[in-house]
Simulated scan of single mutants.
Amino acid sequence: MSRARVRWNGARVSAELRQAAARGALLGAEHVLGASRQRVPINEGTLERSGSTSVDEQTLTAAVSYDTPYATRVHEDMTARHSPGRSAKYLESVLPETAAEVQALIAAQIRRALRG
């Protein structure tokens, strides 16, 4: 009869998977940001350049934001005219379109952590 000894490092594994999920969420947020930058109405480019991403590792929540005083107004004004390919709802409209890619980015980071 052979013996095997197993050491379970559950806390370490959980921490590494959480970090991997946070990395994946950040990559996903950056993907959404890139897609939304393709739709941001452009006058001088200030709004487009103000886009940023962040991740809260505790809650595994990612955010994409645009930081100008008029970002919300431009996003919500459905009556404004914009250049072709640019539109209001420049952030909201890309979320459903990029959901599969975001999920794949998160999954890839978790798979990578499980292999390591």
Results as ranks from 00 to 15, higher is better:
Asp67Ile: 06
Thr59Ile: 00
Leu60Asp: 03
Ile42Gln: 09
Gln19Gly: 14
Ile42Trp: 02
His75Tyr: 03
Gly34His: 12
Ala29Glu: 07
Val64Phe: 09
Asp56Tyr: 07
Glu44Val: 07
Ala15Ser: 14
Ala99Asp: 12
His75Val: 03
Ile110Arg: 13
Ala88Glu: 09
Leu27His: 09
Arg49Glu: 12
Thr98Gly: 01
Ala11Ile: 03
Gly85Ile: 09
Ser52His: 12
Ile106Phe: 00
Glu30Ile: 05
Ala113Met: 13
Arg111His: 14
Pro69Phe: 01
Ala22Gly: 05
Leu27Cys: 04
Ser54Lys: 08
Leu114Ser: 10
Val74Tyr: 00
Pro96Trp: 07
Val32Ile: 15
Thr98Trp: 01
Thr79Leu: 12
Arg73Ile: 06
Leu33Arg: 14
Ser14Cys: 03
Ile110Asp: 10
Ser50Ala: 07
Gln38Pro: 03
Leu114His: 05
Ser2Phe: 10
Arg115Ile: 08
Ser2Ala: 14
Ser14Val: 05
Ser93Arg: 12
Thr79Tyr: 09
His75Asp: 04
Leu26Phe: 03
Val32Trp: 00
Thr53Lys: 03
Val64Glu: 02
Arg49Val: 02
Ala25Gln: 02
Ser50Val: 02
Val55Leu: 04
Gln109Ile: 06
Arg7Cys: 01
Leu17Ile: 14
Val74Asp: 00
Glu30Pro: 04
Met1Cys: 06
Leu114Tyr: 06
Ala80Gln: 14
Val40Gly: 02
Val102Ser: 01
Ala104His: 06
Leu26Gly: 04
Val74Glu: 00
Met78Gly: 07
Ser2Trp: 07
Arg23Ile: 01
Gln19Pro: 02
His82Val: 08
Ser87Asn: 10
Val13Glu: 07
Glu30Lys: 14
Gln58Ala: 10
